[in-house]
Simulated assay, not measured.
Amino acid sequence: MLDALTLGQIRTFVAIAEAGSFRAGAARLLRAQSAVSHAIATLEAQLGLTLFDRSGHRPTLTPEGCVLLEDARAILLKVDFMRARARGFGEGLELELPLVVDTLFPLPLAAAALRELSQELPAVRVRLSVAPLGAPLAALQERACKLAITVGGDFRDPRIELETLMSLRFVAVVAASHPLGQRAGEREAVRSAELAEHLQIVLEDPSPLSEGRDFGVLSPRTWRVSGQDTKLAFILGGVGWGRLPLWAVERDLAEGRLVRVPATALGEQGETTVLAYLAHRIDDPLGPAARALRENLLRHAGARGR
């Protein structure tokens, strides 16, 4: 009987489990509730077990249903990946290529890859957005872009494949005129308690993916800003301290406008290394332009990392 299982039944099972009710699952699938109920009843009969406990106001997964839900999701991911790959074989050149880049990623490197794309495929328009934290991944989840570059591994989604591009060095910095800047000049480790006495400039996530979470925040006093340029301007202006990618502050450090903060809680001498990833959905095929840009980015990032 297991050979009689259909993808429609499996999709119905997952939709109801995720939506929380047969009615909501039916609405998600654009099917009648009676058809959805029949599909689940048939699936349970074929499996020889009960997937949902229907005794309450809302159906809840049985212990067996919870286990099989993971299997069902895995099956659908594989099927969607196969379909996407098949569609990609015959897909024509994109008219437009949407790309979202993490604000922490070096834009000159992205520009070099995009310049080559423009030379190779001049008819393709590129729509580029730069956004922090969870926004690149959220854009992929919402199908607002084909490719995204994200920094750090804090956000994951089984529908999205991540390919390592390069490692990025992050440093804690402050204006030379700031009290912490003068303290940093003594070349002694700065403790967390001392950092907590000063305002920290922090990037704000426009997506809901980091709701209730902070990354590298050590001070109870924070100002939230929407972009890296604003964060750098505030730090240069002596408003507070913060962490920034080394590529963005090398010149300011070399010319003495900024100094490093040797904060022991943020790595040796206040420096940490974070990976940058190229991301795309496994169920959405990359067209010729997206594949070309992917190759360009991997090549340029690899050359930069050597």
Rank of each mutant, 00 (worst) to 15 (best):
A24C: 07
A26P: 05
A32C: 12
A35T: 09
E44T: 09
L47G: 13
D53Y: 07
A72I: 09
R73S: 10
I75Q: 11
I75G: 03
L95S: 02
P98V: 02
T103I: 01
T103A: 00
L107V: 08
P108N: 06
A111Q: 15
L117F: 08
S118P: 03
Q119Y: 06
R127W: 04
L128Q: 08
S129D: 12
P132D: 01
L137E: 11
A148E: 04
I149N: 01
I149M: 03
V151P: 01
G153S: 03
S177T: 13
L180Q: 06
G181W: 02
Q182A: 13
E186L: 15
A189E: 14
S192G: 09
L199T: 14
L199R: 15
I201G: 02
V202S: 04
L203W: 03
P206Y: 00
L209Y: 00
L209E: 05
S210N: 06
V217N: 12
S219E: 04
T222N: 07
W223F: 12
W223K: 05
T230S: 10
A233P: 05
A233H: 14
A233E: 15
G237L: 11
R243D: 08
A254T: 05
R257W: 08
V259T: 13
G267F: 11
Q269K: 07
L275I: 01
Y277E: 00
H280W: 13
G302S: 05
R304M: 10
